[in-house]
């Protein structure tokens, strides 16, 4: 595990912002840290970077206790928290040069990073004149500058256009698959990271609601049998009388948890024998977004 927290708790006054959180981020993964706005994601990230003092619990990164090995651990982490921290009165290049100087990195990294995030053209423009997307890319360049083992990114695709999002996604996949890096990325949109994440943690009100691989998340995802029918309310009542569980009823559709092909056939026969006209019947997988919403709303 690259990140391992146990019982991590943080209070703002008497409000528990992070509640007994146990994060497990495996080496080489892209860990999507998901939750609605205000769920405690940024606070958790600040705890991971030792910007906030933990009230209870422990954090170990690269197998070492964060409080006792702060500098050693931070030297292997690149981070981007909320809006990128860049000096607007300096140019994009100067922002990178400043960091290279602070961390004593080779000067050649500046051009490599500018190339990587495609800011070469705008390198000598003041960062204050950058668009939101360019600032975000400069922030990512700063995070990647020291070639860190672990990247911690807080909503890194904020303000990026679809092309920008795809580029970042590809870059992150490349970093993990080819270079064995680990990426911890937070987002309030599952759709944004479901195509790259290997692992997912879902948090709401400071508590972990789900943690596991993306396959495990998909396994939670129950399929529905959707029946398009003329009189949905009566049909639903009929099904209930025959001890079927009805999950949803709309004006045109009745939905039931999908069990098997055989049962779908039985239901169809039952409806037709009772004089209903079935326009269509079929199995449908819920999308992950709906699942994500149902997980975060249940809590």
């Amino acid at each position: 595990m690259v990140i391992n927290t146990e019982g991590l708790t943080f209070n703002f006054g008497d409000q528990k912002v992070v509640n007994s959180l146990s994060l497990q981020v495996p080496q080489g993964s892209i860990y999507g840290f998901l939750g609605p706005n205000g769920a405690g994601k940024t606070t958790t990230i600040k705890l991971l970077l030792n910007l906030l003092k933990t009230d209870e619990g422990s954090i170990s990164v690269f197998g070492k206790d964060l409080n006792r090995n702060r500098i050693e651990i931070l030297s292997k982490i690149g981070s981007l928290i909320e809006q990128p921290a860049i000096y607007l009165h300096l140019t994009g290049r100067e922002n990178l040069v400043n960091r290279v100087g602070l961390l004593q990195l080779p000067a050649s990294r500046v051009d490599e990073m500018l190339e990587l995030v495609q800011l070469k053209q705008a390198a000598n423009k003041k960062a204050g004149q950058y668009s939101l997307g360019m600032k975000q890319r400069l922030g990512i360049a700063l995070a990647l500058l020291s070639d860190p083992e672990l990247l911690i990114l807080d909503e890194p695709t904020n303000g990026l256009d679809p092309n920008g999002i795809i580029e970042i996604r590809e870059l992150l996949i490349n970093l993990t698959r080819k270079h064995g890096k680990t990426v911890f990325i937070s987002s309030h949109l599952l759709s944004e990271i479901e195509r790259m994440a290997t692992h997912v943690g879902i948090i709401n009100n400071g508590s972990m609601l789900f943690q596991g691989s993306i396959n495990e998340l998909e396994a939670l995802n129950q399929a529905l049998l959707l029946i398009e029918i003329d009189n949905t309310v009566d049909a639903a009542n009929l099904l209930k009388r025959h001890h079927y569980e009805v999950a949803q009823v709309t004006e045109t559709l009745v939905g039931l948890p999908y069990v098997s092909k055989q049962e779908s056939g039985d239901i169809n026969t039952l409806l037709i024998n009772n004089g209903y006209t079935v326009y269509s019947i079929g199995k449908q997988q819920q999308d992950l977004e709906t699942l994500f919403l149902s997980i975060t709303q249940k809590a």
């Binding site: 970077l49 030792n50 910007l51 500098i71 050693e72 931070l74 928290i81 860049i86 607007l88």
Partner: peptide, 18 residues
Amino acid sequence: NIEHKADTWKMLFSLPLP
């Protein structure tokens, strides 16, 4: 103010420097 304005305190203190 140079750090307040650019919102860079968090970055400054998450660098591997004492």
